[in-house]
C-alpha cells in the first residue's frame, strides 16, 4: 500500500489526490484532504481515475507492428524529417507536463516546424498580445467564495463540478450570481467573471470578455484539460491545427497526449506520430506510437487553476526524454 501524492489530469483545476498502489499491483485513487484547491473532494472523473490508469499501457509501434522503443523513435525522426514543414504540425492539447511541452516545442523548432498548437490557437491569436495574460490568470478558488458578484458567461458549472461548492458558498455569503449567455449584455464592474476557454469556444466571445472587463473585474477561464494553462504560458500556440487538419492543409502530425473526442479528424493524415500513455482510438490509427509514462508517474509540473505550479507526483522523466532524444539520441 503505497500512497503517491498526485493531481487529477481531468481539467485545469488539478484536484489533489493520492494514487494508491496495492501489493498486487492494482492502482486506485484515494482522497487527499490536504489539497487546498479541492480539499480532498473529487468529481466522477477523479473518482474513476484508477480505471484510466489501469488501462493497457501503450506500446512502441511502427505501422501497427510492435517494435522496440529506439526503433520507433528513430523511425519517427526519419519520417518527420522527410515531411514538408509547412504541412506538418505539432499538437499538444494540454494533457502533458510543462517540461514535456517545452521539450516538444523545442523539437518542433529543431525540425523547422512552426505549426504548433494546444488546440486554442484560434482563440488566443484573436486576443491582442498584450492582453493574453488574462487567459491564464490564476484565481484562488477561495476568492470566489468571498466575491460580491459572480458572472458566469457561457459557462456551465456542471462541466467543472468542483466549482459548484465555491459558487454555493459565495451565494451563502451574499454574492450576486448571474448567468450570462453568449452575446448578452452585462456589467462586469467588481465581479469575478468565470467563463470557459476550450477548443470549441467562440473566439469573438473570449476577446469580448477580456475587452469589456475593467481593472475591477477578475477573469477566470476554466479549461478542459490538465495543463492548458502551462501550454499557453509556454507559448505553445500559433496555428489553428485542428481546422488545418480538417481542411487537409496539414498532412503530417506529431500528437502529444491526445484527449478523447477528436478521433474523427486524424483519419486522413499521411503521417501520424502519437506519444501517449494509454491505448486509444487515436493510437490505433497512428503510424508510429511512442509510449510515455502514465500521468501520475511523470516527473514534472502543471499550472493549475489558481496559477500554482504543482508537481504531478512521479519520478519518471521519460515523457520529456522522448521528444528531446528524438533529435539528440
Amino acid at each position: 500500500m503505497e500512497f503517491i501524492p498526485s493531481i487529477c489530469p481531468g481539467c485545469c483545476i488539478n484536484c489533489g489526490l493520492y494514487i494508491v498502489r496495492d501489493e498486487d499491483g492494482g492502482i486506485r485513487i484515494d482522497y487527499r484532504k490536504s489539497s487546498s484547491v479541492n480539499e480532498g473532494k473529487l468529481c466522477r472523473f477523479g473518482v474513476e481515475l484508477g480505471d484510466l490508469y489501469s488501462q493497457e499501457h501503450l506500446k512502441a509501434t511502427v505501422n501497427g507492428k510492435e517494435v522496440d522503443f529506439n526503433t520507433a523513435k528513430k523511425e519517427a525522426l526519419k519520417r518527420l524529417k522527410k515531411t514538408d514543414p509547412r504541412s506538418t504540425g505539432f499538437l499538444a492539447m494540454g494533457n502533458s507536463t510543462n517540461e514535456e511541452i517545452r521539450a516538444f516545442k523545442k523539437l518542433a523548432g529543431e525540425l523547422g516546424i512552426r505549426n504548433i498548437d494546444c488546440g486554442l490557437s484560434k482563440q488566443i491569436l484573436n486576443v491582442p498580445e498584450a492582453a493574453r495574460n488574462y487567459l491564464t490568470a490564476g484565481v484562488p478558488l477561495r476568492e470566489i467564495e468571498q466575491a460580491e458578484k459572480i458572472l458566469l458567461i457561457s459557462f456551465n458549472p456542471e462541466n467543472y463540478p468542483l466549482i459548484i461548492r465555491r459558487l454555493l458558498r459565495a451565494e451563502r455569503n451574499g454574492a450576486e450570481l448571474l448567468k450570462v449567455g453568449s452575446g448578452e449584455p452585462y456589467v462586469g464592474r467588481g465581479a469575478i467573471i468565470v467563463s470557459e476557454l476550450a477548443p470549441t469556444s467562440d473566439p469573438a466571445s473570449i476577446r469580448q470578455i477580456i475587452e469589456e472587463a475593467d481593472d475591477t473585474a477578475t477573469i477566470l477561464f476554466m479549461k478542459p484539460y490538465a495543463n492548458l494553462n502551462g501550454a499557453i504560458r509556454l507559448g505553445f500556440y500559433g496555428f489553428d491545427l485542428i481546422e488545418a487538419i480538417r481542411s487537409d492543409e496539414i498532412k503530417s502530425l506529431f500528437l502529444l497526449d491526445p484527449p478523447p473526442g477528436y478521433e474523427d479528424i486524424f483519419h486522413d493524415l499521411e503521417l501520424l506520430v502519437v506519444q501517449s500513455d494509454h491505448e486509444s482510438e487515436v493510437t490505433e490509427m497512428a503510424d508510429i506510437t511512442l509510449p510515455s509514462p502514465r500521468f501520475f508517474e511523470r516527473r514534472g509540473t502543471v499550472v493549475n487553476v489558481e496559477g500554482d505550479v504543482l508537481p504531478v507526483g512521479g519520478d519518471s522523466g521519460a515523457g520529456v526524454e522522448i521528444p528531446s532524444k528524438i533529435i539528440f539520441p
Binding site: K41, C43, R44, E158, P161
Partner: peptide, 12 residues
C-alpha cells in the same frame, strides 16, 4: 438536488 453522483460518499 446538487448531487453529481460521483459516488465518493459510497466509496469512502
Amino acid at each position: 438536488s446538487r448531487c453529481i453522483h460521483c459516488e465518493s460518499c459510497k466509496i469512502v
